[in-house]
Design a protein around this nucleic acid. Structure first.
Lengths: 281, 281
DNA sequence: TATGGATTGGAATTATTATTTCATATTACC
DNA sequence: GGTAATATGAAATAATAATTCCAATCCATA
């Protein structure tokens, strides 16, 4: 066997492309197939891959040996490793970008960093959304007369988007904000037949926490989006979601929170439509 | 065998979590391992997985059977499919999810859809950000006395986040919004030594366009974030960015716009800090 | 604490899959 | 055009891996 066997996918890929023209016909055929369908190589069996590529299993093994592997199995490992890495790389990329930005790597790095932070956050939340909580929250919000939306400072953009979306879906809602300082009055109108979506992350804006407390004491159920079970919001909430947003350059992403907020909003809209239809029938 | 075998990873995951407490000890052990190390299940052999999880291979097979699969092999397929999907392009996933949601595939699908839409948008923008425009925009904003931030309706959350971030960075800024209807007066204070960040997407909010026109007529340079060169905003702008946000269930993602907005803001902050340092030296 | 049922471990068995081998075909070179 | 070297196909074989089976153990219940 060769001394320098390609051990990562990129090297392998380069090697294949270099030798492409000096390979026998069938071997070249499987080489092309491998670069076009790396996933199939990662998961298939020698027989199944050979069949898809239109060659014999033995050819596949010869291909691997030409590249310096001692058989198909070791070649396949490289393709599998690729899939593993692809999956875990967001975090690593973000760490690299943070380091880069630290040393002043220019403005493009800042942009890449925010994109990566958003990607990481999305990755994270898609894996850990609690579906039961999600359903509970939807049920709770769907039967509310008015949905109050409560968020300050960093979380405020999410609240304003929720309010916009609820409005578009013709769901009665009230964004708790008032230039005139009438928040307390606004809150006092909320009843147990209403519901609240409250969003706050550490460091929790005191106003958001206070208002959440008052409103929960009035018996209005709260759906909270926050960052940990220690969050003061969590204790006032009927249902709460933990969202871990990655940050970059001191500013946390809002992508995951936004996605969750939009999903909640649209799901509530859908549930109401379904309920309305049933009532008519 | 059970009639309804989990066929995708998320369903499987949920099923496992539901039954978690009613499973025998060793089976529960492998269940926990499976959820913690899905990649290992996808790639390993029954023997290797069993060893890592500290159980017998037969237990692993019993686990699969409890879930309704007819053996380890069919369980493994679900874990492999997950990796394939993760890897498949965001676009394809989004298309699949849209189709799913169409046929009313439940609330989880809505959530997944918004996550995928955000991911697609991020993917897209990271590939096509024009670096020259980016630098121009930063330079333009960095030398502004006051940065005005202009966006209505759907884009308003972005504007409010920009205003929040600028504030944190101690950069003088003015969000153009006024419950008292004083926008026109607010705008009239802007001078050519200031600058504007304007954000608007089709269908362009008339108020946003009008205000952008007025303010540009006053000679105030505008950095625009919009969705095409046909956008009315583009014609008033000194620098403009095209951002294509994917949409889901009728609501467009804001992730790419947010990432760009944050990058702009932080880069401006950095540029000012650097400039300040130089002036002192 | 005795008893039945459920659970588990470990080896035996079966199945699947990779690899080797060898006959045949193709190609390149004289 | 003949010959040697190389490449390919197909089946045989070896290796590996999944599954089954049965004895041992654990656990709940009477």
């Amino acid at each position: 066997m060769d001394e320098r066997v390609p051990r990562d996918f990129e090297t392998l890929r380069t090697t294949i492309l270099e030798r492409r023209h000096s390979l026998p016909k069938r071997i070249a055929q499987i080489a092309a197939y491998a670069l076009d369908n790396p996933d199939d190589i990662a998961f298939g069996t020698a027989a199944s891959i050979a069949a898809s590529a239109g060659v014999q299993p033995s050819t596949l093994i010869r291909f691997a040996q030409q590249l310096g592997f001692d058989g198909f199995t070791s070649l396949q490992l490289v393709f599998r490793e690729r899939l593993r890495e692809r999956n875990s790389s967001y975090d690593e990329r973000l760490a690299a970008l943070r380091a880069k930005a630290e040393e002043g790597a220019g403005h493009r790095a800042i942009f890449d960093g925010f994109v990566a932070a958003a990607g990481t956050s999305l990755n994270d939340i898609s894996g850990r959304l609690n579906e039961d909580h999600f359903e509970d929250a939807i049920a709770l919000l769907a039967k509310a007369e008015t949905i109050y939306v409560l968020a300050k400072r960093r979380s405020y953009p999410v609240a304003s988007y929720i309010a916009y979306a609820l409005g578009k879906l013709k769901i009665r809602n009230q964004l708790i904000e008032s230039a005139a300082g009438l928040n307390a009055e606004m809150i006092s109108f909320a009843s147990p037949r209403d519901a609240v979506i409250a969003i706050s992350f550490s460091p929790y804006a005191p106003a958001a926490i206070d208002e959440a407390r008052v409103i929960s004491e009035q018996g209005v159920p709260i759906v909270a989006i926050t960052d940990s079970s220690f969050s003061p919001l969590a204790q006032f909430a009927k249902v709460w979601f933990e969202v871990a947003e990655a940050d970059f350059a001191g500013f946390r992403s809002l992508s995951a929170t936004m996605a969750l907020a939009m999903a909640l909003t649209v799901a509530v809209g859908e549930k109401r439509r379904d309920a309305g239809r049933k009532r008519k029938a």
